[in-house]
Design a protein around this nucleic acid. Structure first.
Ligand SMILES: [Mn+2]
Ligand SMILES: [Mn+2]
Ligand SMILES: [Zn+2]
Ligand SMILES: [Zn+2]
Lengths: 138, 138
DNA sequence: TAGTGTATGCAATGGAAGTGCATTAATTTG
DNA sequence: CAAATTAATGCACTTCCATTGCATACACTA
């Protein structure tokens, strides 16, 4: 678990006990998680602490926030060397209506969007809703 | 203003006084509006009525809901013959960080999104945030 | 005109994000 | 090591918006 510490330190986040645990939790998840998910798992910790832990992760570019349209903010760890850049890092997010899971399709980068004259793009959010591969095979 | 009635009737919405007024309000707006926008304009009407009016419009495909990432639901009238179909009707939405306005770029349809094997797309939300043409020229 | 269904208004609820402040833990400094 | 400073945590509270329940008013039909 020294590795966990390294990850945090690399991003200039002090490795507190709580942060290590939340990081581990995130690492184990293949799909994006909500604050409530973390809260339900770490029942003994305070919601605010968990909230701020996630916030810290996002601010230090360890994780990114996902607005999947459900109204509940999701979080997922960033890929190695991600800086959430619009051209290189931003990717498609998929929300399954059946299992209700949101996942990062990191291989599917946001396509180039042409905008009308004089519009400047600084951020893009692309969410596809539908049925995921797991639910589709049932 | 008989035209307004026609629009509502065409979509099987009974043309009450309130609905006609809200429809007119939407027609006059070039950018998307929030429930609070409507509420601020029609100060004498109840918020719930306005809320349900917008809901009715969305359900009868007269308008569409827009999740622009601000956390505040926006509404805009649909184009003629729109059925909010994923291939033909869904379009790009732009949110300006400066003037805080969200607009429908109806000429910019959602590009074809390739998904991994066995994923089914049923809905897509594409929002670009940045600086709009008006704010850019200042 | 009576009766039925829909629309409206008011009050209350719910869910989630975010903040203020006191307390505790960690770190720095003398 | 002890005192002082800084950072992290926990608890209570707030805010904001979406949504619902229910009573009343209105519109339309038989
Ligand atoms: Mn992602
Ligand atoms: Mn639109
Ligand atoms: Zn699924
Ligand atoms: Zn603008």
């Amino acid at each position: 678990m020294i590795e966990l510490e390294q990850i945090l330190k690399k991003n200039n986040v002090k490795p507190t006990a709580m942060r290590l645990l939340v990081l581990q939790f995130l690492l184990n998840k293949k799909s994006a998680i909500s604050l409530t998910d973390v809260e339900d798992y770490f029942v003994k910790s305070d919601r605010t602490t968990l909230y701020r832990t996630l916030k810290t992760f996002v601010e230090s570019e360890l994780a990114h926030k996902i607005d999947d349209g459900t109204g509940i903010t999701k979080y997922a760890l960033c890929e190695e060397n991600c800086h959430c850049e619009i051209e290189t890092d931003l990717h498609l997010h998929f929300h399954c209506k059946l299992c209700n899971e949101t996942s990062c399709l990191t291989d599917h980068k946001i396509p180039n969007i042409s905008l009308p004259k004089n519009f400047i793009a600084e951020d893009v959010n692309l969410v596809v809703k539908g049925i995921c591969n797991k639910c589709n095979s049932n």
